[in-house]
Simulated assay, not measured.
Amino acid sequence: MKRRDFIILGTAGTVLAGQPVRADPLQYSDGLLQSHLAAGDTVFLDFKASWCSTCAAQDRVLTKLKAGNADYEAHITFIDVDWDAFGQSDLVKRLRIPRRSTLVVLKGDQEYGRIVAQTGTAQIQQLMDGALALAQSS
């Protein structure tokens, strides 16, 4: 990298430092969920499959809502759960997840909301707003 490019990139990073950075959701792995719940985080689980059209529709709504409100990503931990890898897991059994395209909000050892196979913006926003209120209340 040329020195000039490095300085330009560094300056851009400094200018953007005050801007919220859109983070990709975490990818579920054993222990990840438990560590976030133990830390007191509000967690938004998205049980999805790459081939699922309902999951893709939900993802478009989630992306749009997150883009419109930086507080979602600032206060909620988003975790994607790959249905092909974890559809038969203890997590799915314990939470009684009926199918892919299920969205669940958890905090501590409590479930605070769930949507199954719904793609409406209003329903998903209501779940996200509830998660945000829960995250900001503590």
Rank of each mutant, 00 (worst) to 15 (best):
residue 56 A to N: 14
residue 1 M to V: 03
residue 106 L to A: 09
residue 37 L to D: 08
residue 43 V to T: 06
residue 126 Q to A: 15
residue 11 T to C: 15
residue 38 A to F: 08
residue 45 L to T: 05
residue 20 P to A: 07
residue 83 W to C: 06
residue 66 K to R: 11
residue 72 Y to C: 03
residue 72 Y to N: 06
residue 133 A to S: 14
residue 37 L to E: 10
residue 93 K to N: 15
residue 20 P to R: 02
residue 88 Q to R: 11
residue 44 F to D: 12
residue 111 E to P: 04
residue 23 A to K: 07
residue 83 W to K: 02
residue 51 W to Q: 13
residue 27 Q to G: 03
residue 25 P to D: 01
residue 45 L to K: 07
residue 128 M to P: 00
residue 34 Q to F: 05
residue 2 K to V: 04
residue 27 Q to H: 11
residue 40 G to E: 10
residue 73 E to D: 15
residue 18 G to H: 03
residue 79 I to M: 05
residue 47 F to I: 07
residue 113 G to I: 06
residue 134 L to C: 08
residue 103 L to V: 02
residue 47 F to S: 06
residue 23 A to W: 05
residue 119 T to S: 02
residue 72 Y to Q: 01
residue 116 V to K: 12
residue 58 Q to W: 01
residue 26 L to I: 07
residue 3 R to I: 06
residue 13 G to N: 05
residue 57 A to T: 03
residue 2 K to R: 12
residue 31 G to N: 09
residue 21 V to I: 08
residue 114 R to S: 08
residue 59 D to T: 06
residue 72 Y to R: 04
residue 15 V to A: 12
residue 87 G to V: 05
residue 130 G to F: 00
residue 4 R to I: 14
residue 131 A to L: 07
residue 93 K to W: 05
residue 11 T to V: 15
residue 29 S to G: 09
residue 48 K to Y: 00
residue 133 A to K: 15
residue 78 F to P: 01
residue 48 K to C: 00
residue 2 K to M: 06
residue 56 A to M: 08
residue 83 W to R: 00
residue 67 A to F: 00
residue 122 A to S: 14
residue 110 Q to M: 12
residue 124 I to T: 06
residue 133 A to L: 13
residue 65 L to D: 09
residue 105 V to Y: 08
residue 7 I to V: 12
residue 109 D to C: 04
residue 132 L to H: 05
residue 54 T to Q: 10
residue 81 V to I: 10
residue 127 L to S: 04
residue 113 G to E: 14
residue 17 A to K: 02
residue 104 V to H: 08
residue 6 F to H: 01
residue 15 V to E: 10
residue 75 H to F: 05
residue 116 V to G: 09
residue 119 T to H: 00
residue 95 L to G: 08
residue 60 R to G: 04
residue 26 L to G: 07
residue 41 D to Q: 11
residue 98 P to D: 10
residue 51 W to H: 12
residue 30 D to E: 15
residue 97 I to G: 04
residue 25 P to S: 01
residue 63 T to W: 01
residue 102 T to H: 05
residue 58 Q to A: 01
residue 70 A to C: 07
residue 28 Y to M: 07
residue 10 G to R: 02
residue 99 R to E: 15
residue 34 Q to H: 09
residue 97 I to P: 05
residue 65 L to V: 08
residue 109 D to H: 11
residue 104 V to K: 10
residue 55 C to A: 10
residue 58 Q to S: 05
residue 64 K to C: 00
residue 26 L to K: 14
residue 105 V to S: 09
residue 60 R to Y: 00
residue 125 Q to K: 09
residue 51 W to V: 04
residue 59 D to Y: 00
residue 34 Q to D: 14
residue 130 G to E: 12
residue 20 P to K: 02
residue 49 A to Q: 08
residue 107 K to S: 13
residue 124 I to G: 03
residue 18 G to D: 12
residue 20 P to I: 01
residue 121 T to G: 11
residue 74 A to M: 09
residue 128 M to R: 04
residue 87 G to R: 05
residue 41 D to G: 06
residue 90 D to G: 11
residue 52 C to Y: 03
residue 80 D to M: 00
residue 73 E to W: 01
residue 81 V to G: 02
residue 29 S to Q: 13
residue 138 S to D: 11
residue 89 S to R: 10
residue 137 S to Y: 12
residue 121 T to K: 10
residue 16 L to P: 03
residue 53 S to M: 10
residue 113 G to N: 13
residue 72 Y to I: 03
residue 73 E to F: 01
residue 19 Q to M: 13
residue 19 Q to H: 04
residue 20 P to C: 03
residue 100 R to E: 13
residue 77 T to A: 11
residue 122 A to F: 08
residue 6 F to K: 08
residue 106 L to P: 07
residue 6 F to S: 12
residue 60 R to L: 03
